[in-house]
Design a protein around this nucleic acid. Structure first.
Lengths: 208, 208
DNA sequence: TCCGCTCGATACCGATGGGTATCGTTTGGG
DNA sequence: CCCAAACGATACCCATCGGTATCGAGCGGA
């Protein structure tokens, strides 16, 4: 999840812009956006506020850039499961579920960055919001594609169900209302993929 | 969801404390907690900041009180479906799902108050956090009870799945990544309840 | 060598916001 | 009728925070 492997994450002699993004990543994730001041980011990045404003127009721009990076991490996860399980859409989806499930412990204190940012940025005009919406739309499209490839009946509905479950698992992990969310999540997704789709049964509710 | 039926919601000649709670409810829901100043609440309630601080120790206490009210609304929804469908746990659960599904359009701009508050209040020690956790735990307990009564194999797992789906539907509605979330949600919950439980699969607690 | 860019440091500005003090006015119960 | 409590209004204090201005030190390239 928080992609601690992307960059050394050890603030060292990286160029300041990278150090700032590293620091922002850590602080935004653990403390939230609005609770973290630019000053705090500067200190954590071992630089100054001025240096930050040389690289980013405003704090909002920095937030948007951070979310772009997080989105790229998720995209990378999609890419990885696709290359690891070529032409095996079911295993690709299970790989995605595992990616989320394994990230759950890391977000148990603090939630999913997208969900949190959505709550912290009510303005739809905020640049970060557009990053999120674009990312989510792209992710949904890709998941629907996998469900289609997996031969699931009504792939859009299946993608919706998987999305709901993935998001919900993160929320429930965050508020601690349910235990063993990782295991439960894997079992649920497995159940969705291996559901016996009785051909007589399907024309029940107003399916598309 | 936002329970516009609970109180007149029309700021009139209610006692100031009620007017403050009304105003806080509307503003916190639509704008978020941290973006709403006490001053703004006072203006909306047609009173002053001082009057607010006569009834609430701090802003945090007001936030907690607001969430207590929201939680009570949800509890009322539980009570309602139980009395409307006595001894029919499946219909009770469907009623809950419908309660959430019908609330989705109202939260399409802004998300579920609990999820949002969780994101806005990272401190586990915040009084509002304890309200949320207590409420979520209670809700989970009740849902597990319904699943048990419904004779579902592994009721805890079923309750987890339903919870995930309900939370996820709210998140996905908020970020707009999926369309027709209400219909999809109802179909999913229906599928969970009417799933053919293969008798070999789960020799678990065959609770009544 | 010298020019220009980036970097670091500090001080500052203006706005916002939580919370308090004060004072005059309303209001309802004994 | 009278008093005390609650109310409304205003002004204020102080901390935080986004963003800016300035100045001097390093540093790479021509």
């Amino acid at each position: 999840m928080t992609s601690t492997a992307r960059r050394p994450s050890r603030v060292a002699k990286l160029p300041p812009r990278e150090r700032v993004l590293d620091a922002a990543e850590q602080l935004f994730q653990s403390e939230g956006i609005r609770r973290v001041s630019v000053q705090a980011i500067a200190e954590r990045a071992e630089t100054t506020k001025m240096a930050i404003y040389r690289h980013f127009e405003t704090k909002d721009a920095l937030v948007a850039e951070w979310l772009r990076i997080v989105a790229a991490d998720y995209q990378a996860a999609f890419d990885r499961v696709e290359t690891e399980h070529p032409d095996r859409p079911r295993e690709q989806i299970m790989g995605l579920a595992r990616f989320i499930a394994e990230g759950l412990p890391a977000i148990s204190h603090r939630g999913c960055p997208f969900i949190n940012s959505l709550a912290e940025l009510p303005d739809r005009s905020h640049p970060a919001r557009q990053v999120i919406e674009k990312h989510k739309a792209h992710q949904t499209r890709r998941l629907v594609g996998m469900c289609t490839d997996a031969g699931l009946p009504d792939p859009e509905q299946a993608a919706a169900e998987i999305t709901f479950v993935l998001e919900g698992a993160q929320v429930s992990t965050h508020n601690g209302s349910i235990d063993q969310t990782g295991d439960r999540l894997m079992r649920i997704v497995d159940g969705i993929l291996n559901r016996p789709h009785s051909p007589l049964d399907t024309p029940r509710t107003t399916a598309t």
